[in-house]
C-alpha cells in the first residue's frame, strides 16, 4: 500500500515536471511580448524598456528563466503578475472562489441529472426512454457549450428578460443571495449540460455491465426483491467506474468553465487564464497551469483512495 502510494507520488512529480517544462516553453516561445503593452505608452524609451525587461528577468536565457521560476515556486513564491505586480497566488485565490461556485454547482447538477437518467436507462434497457436518453446525450455532447450559452442568453435574457446575461452580481447593487443565484442559474446550467450527458452515458454503461453479471442472476434466483438487488448489488458495484469518472471529470470542469466564463463574463479562473494568455502574463498563466495540473493529478490519487473505500477487495494489502 505505502509502496504503491510512493510510486504514485513519484509519477505525479514526473508528470508535473513535464507539464511545467512544456508549459513554460510553449508560453515563452509563442510569439508576442509581455512588454508590448508598456511599449505603447507615450514617452517610453528603449532604455526604460530594457530596464523593465531586465527587472522582469526576461532577458536571461530561457533555461535560466525556467530554473529561477522553478526555484522560487519550490520555496512557495509563485511570482508576481507582469500586469499589476500583484502576487500570483493572491490573484489566483481571488478568482478561485467564483470558479468553484460555478463549477461546483454545475457538477452537482450534472451528476444528479446525469446519473438519474443513466440509471433509468440501464434499468429499462431497450425501452423507448432508454433510446431517447442515449440519443439526447449524444446530441448534448455534439454541440459546443458556448452555443448553448448564446442561445440561452438570447432566449432568457434578451427575449424574456428573466435572467441576467452575465457577471456574478448586479453591478453597483449590494450583495444579496437572490441576486447571486439569479446570476448563477444560466452559466451553471450551460456548464452542466455536456457533463450531464457524459454522466448519463457512463452510468448507463456501468450499471448495464453489472446487470449482465452472474451474481445478479444468482441474487435474482435466490429470490431477492428487485429493489434490494438494485440498491445492494447493482449500485455498489457500479460505483467503481463512476468514481473513476468523477476523477476524470475534475480537470475538465475547470477547462469547461473557461469557455462558459467567457460567454457569461464570470470573474473566475478561466477568464483570468484567457486574459493572462492574451497579455502574455507568464507568471499568472504558469501559476494557473500548475494549479490545474496539481488538481488533475491529485484528483487521480484521491480517486484511487476512494476506490479502496468503495471496494473491499482492494482493502487487503496488494501482492
Amino acid at each position: 500500500m505505502t509502496d504503491a502510494f510512493v510510486s504514485r507520488l513519484a509519477r505525479m512529480a514526473v508528470t508535473l515536471a513535464i507539464v511545467s517544462v512544456t508549459g513554460f516553453l510553449l508560453l515563452h516561445l509563442a510569439p508576442g511580448d509581455p512588454l508590448a503593452q508598456f511599449a505603447l505608452s507615450p514617452g517610453m524609451t528603449a532604455t526604460q524598456l530594457g530596464a523593465m525587461r531586465h527587472q522582469m528577468g526576461l532577458d536571461a536565457a530561457l533555461p535560466l528563466q525556467y530554473l529561477r521560476w522553478l526555484g522560487a515556486l519550490l520555496t512557495g513564491d509563485w511570482g508576481r503578475s507582469f500586469r499589476d505586480h500583484q502576487p500570483v497566488l493572491t490573484i489566483i485565490l481571488g478568482h478561485l472562489g467564483a470558479t468553484l461556485e460555478l463549477a461546483g454547482t454545475a457538477a452537482l447538477l450534472a451528476i444528479w441529472t446525469g446519473a438519474a437518467a443513466g440509471l433509468y436507462g440501464a434499468f429499462r434497457q431497450g425501452s423507448r426512454a432508454d433510446h431517447l436518453i442515449t440519443v439526447a446525450s449524444i446530441i448534448l455532447l455534439s454541440i459546443p457549450t458556448f452555443w448553448f450559452g448564446l442561445v440561452f442568453i438570447s432566449l432568457f435574457s434578451v427575449r424574456l428578460g428573466w435572467l441576467p446575461s452575465g457577471n456574478i452580481h448586479t453591478v453597483g447593487a449590494p450583495f444579496s443571495p437572490a441576486d447571486y443565484l439569479k446570476h448563477l442559474i444560466l452559466p451553471a446550467t450551460v456548464l452542466a449540460l455536456a457533463s450531464a450527458a457524459t454522466w448519463s452515458r457512463y452510468t448507463r454503461n456501468a450499471v448495464a455491465d453489472v446487470l449482465g453479471q452472474d451474481f445478479i442472476r444468482t441474487a435474482r434466483a435466490k429470490g431477492l426483491s428487485p429493489r434490494k438487488i438494485r440498491s445492494r448489488h447493482v449500485l455498489r458495484n457500479a460505483l467503481l467506474p463512476m468514481i473513476t469518472l468523477a476523477g476524470l471529470q475534475f480537470p475538465t470542469l475547470l477547462s469547461g468553465a473557461l469557455v462558459t466564463e467567457t460567454v457569461f463574463t464570470w470573474p473566475g479562473i478561466g477568464r483570468l487564464f484567457l486574459d493572462s494568455l492574451e497579455y502574455r502574463d507568464y507568471p499568472v498563466a504558469m501559476g494557473i497551469l500548475m494549479f490545474s495540473a496539481v488538481l488533475a493529478t491529485a484528483g487521480s490519487i484521491v480517486t484511487d483512495a476512494l476506490y479502496t473505500v468503495a471496494d473491499p477487495r482492494l482493502r487487503q494489502a496488494r501482492p
Binding site: 508528470t15 507539464v19 508549459g23 509563442a30 480537470p251 494568455l277 497551469l289 495540473a293 493529478t297
Partner: peptide, 22 residues
C-alpha cells in the same frame, strides 16, 4: 505514455490557443 499523461493534464483550450499563436 508519460508524455501523453502530462499533455492530458493541460486544459485542451490552453493547448489550442497557445499552439495557434505560433
Amino acid at each position: 505514455m508519460r508524455l501523453v499523461d502530462a499533455v492530458l493534464c493541460f486544459p485542451t483550450i490552453f493547448l489550442l490557443l497557445t499552439l495557434a499563436s505560433f
